[in-house]
Write a protein that binds this DNA or RNA. Structure first.
Lengths: 218, 218
DNA sequence: ACCTGAACACCGTTCAAGT
DNA sequence: ACCTGAACACCGTTCAAGT
């Protein structure tokens, strides 16, 4: 980046990189160029460094992705658990969860499939959510499956945000899909994003449904 | 594959490849080696052919992925719409949808993010689902968002199936996550897959919730 | 038309060599 | 310790040359 200073081989007097700088630049890059063009080489270039320098801070590309996921997860809001009523705390968590990934749309597919083993801060997030469910009276054996069900919906919704807004546009095949055309037009006349509307509908249903089946009357 | 016959350059007397053979082998390969090692070169090798030969049948790797998605989508069951009651038809569709991707776990993240433009058979699937919702009395402007909400949950659940079963295992961080440890143990004592249980719970909630908010009493 | 062979601009990763 | 340079085994894709 800084072309005024050309580095020759050898240890620089002061470190050029640090882990946080790398993770931040990686998310920014992934977001701007997309997963296809997201490479170690491109990231190095963005940081004004040669590719091998990155391997001093991350073991490999997969470890980089795990670190990126952790940064994204840090902005998930778990402050409601133990303070607000369960349904409000969960709503806050779910919306901020989706927003966190929505801020890095291209990261979703890449990051959602990485295991969380060894990611301490991400584990801490789950611990807080679990405690929130237990405190609200959940039977322990239902906690994980209910969280996973909710999370599946959240991540699927985040995945849906990556899709182009005209994803369902039949184009030349419109004559064969009159129902789809009608539904799309009716939806469009409502205004607002299809993805946002769908998320709102689904989240309300999930929260109400989970509350009911776990003895929390509406 | 067939090492007894070594091909020299030039058009073979009979075509070695066809589109269907390529798509089938591609799904099989993606499933067996994972997305990381899934390459045009590996696919060509599996088909006993050199990489450039593939480009006679698919424009590029992205087009290959779209074709693969279409094959997967073909096994989604839409036969219930117009025959069974709405909630049963949707349940059949949703379960077969998840199963279709579950049969190709490594394909989910790759295929779920591809747009469906130009994929006629996939569009036909959506048309059938839309018609099912309209016939059940849905207001047109609610059809797409409700389908998308449901689909987000289904795809998120499919994505969850890719995660290792011990994804939440805190490992060395167990002392810091007592609630998580308890919930995992309680869940484990129930037997059955966490992913399957979560999907069942969430699907029932989604179907009931959608039915209620659209005037279909339970 | 349908394949191979050669070539291109890339990857991720390792490692010795510099400071 | 922290960077570069060179090298390795790969990518996806194009295109001429063969039959």
């Amino acid at each position: 980046m800084d072309l005024s200073e050309i580095r020759r081989a050898g240890r620089p007097r002061k470190s050029v990189l640090d882990r946080e700088k790398i993770l931040g630049a990686a998310l920014e890059l992934l977001n701007s160029v997309g997963p296809e063009k997201f490479s170690m080489a491109a990231l190095a270039g963005e940081l004004g460094v040669k590719p091998p320098a990155l391997y001093h801070y991350v073991k490999n590309k997969q470890a980089l992705l795990v670190g990126m996921r952790e940064v994204v997860s840090d902005s998930i809001d778990i402050s409601g658990f133990g303070v607000l009523p369960w349904s409000e705390a969960v709503g806050l968590w779910a919306r901020s969860y989706r927003d966190a990934f929505a801020a890095h749309p291209n990261a979703i597919a890449l990051l959602a499939t990485e295991p969380i083993a060894g990611a301490a801060r991400t584990l801490a997030m789950y611990e807080c959510v679990v405690q929130g469910f237990l405190a609200a009276g959940w039977e322990p054996n239902r906690v994980m499956s209910d969280i996973v069900a909710l999370e599946s919906f959240i991540l699927g919704s985040a995945l849906d945000m990556v899709a182009p807004d005209d994803m369902f546009d039949p184009g030349a095949d419109a004559p064969q899909t009159p129902g789809l055309v009608e539904a799309l037009a009716a939806q469009a006349s409502l205004g607002g994003s299809r993805a946002d509307t769908a998320f709102g509908v689904g989240l309300d249903i999930m929260i109400d449904g989970l509350a009911l089946t776990n003895g929390l009357g509406a």
